[in-house]
């Protein structure tokens, strides 16, 4: 794989199922619609997970992302990218569940 910038990576993730984990520990799982330079994020078919338990769901959701407030975005997206590039799907049970859930 050729050299990629973080921006290229993010562009490649748009339209894919992602997990957005906030610093508070809350997770939002959904399809990444778009994002901007502040890392504001728009998601579709969003589900909110607290401690791994689904708490609620939203059709669309806007997550405010600047100022280093809450949106820590990379953790799982990074894993998703590993998942796609190596095909090692068994790497993480949680992620396997996630990919199953996200085959809409």
């Amino acid at each position: 794989m050729s050299k990629r910038t973080p921006g290229d990576f993010l562009k490649s993730v748009v339209g894919r199922p992602v997990v957005v984990k906030l610093n508070s520990g809350v997770e939002y799982r959904g399809i990444l619609t778009c994002l901007d330079g502040f890392m504001n994020i728009a998601l579709e078919q969003t589900e909110e997970y607290i401690n791994g338990i689904r708490v609620s769901s939203f059709g669309d959701a806007f997550v405010r992302g600047n100022n280093g407030l809450f949106a820590a975005f990379f953790g799982v997206n990074y894993f998703i990218s590993i998942l796609h590039s190596t095909g090692k799907v068994k790497k993480s049970i949680m992620l396997r569940q996630h990919t199953k859930e996200c085959q809409y």
């Binding site: 906030l22 939203f58 669309d60 959701a61 806007f62 405010r64 100022n67």
Partner: peptide, 13 residues
């Protein structure tokens, strides 16, 4: 705005 975490249109859900 600085207190906002998430905005969602609830009726469309």
């Amino acid at each position: 705005g600085d207190g906002v975490i998430l905005v969602s249109p609830p009726l469309r859900t």
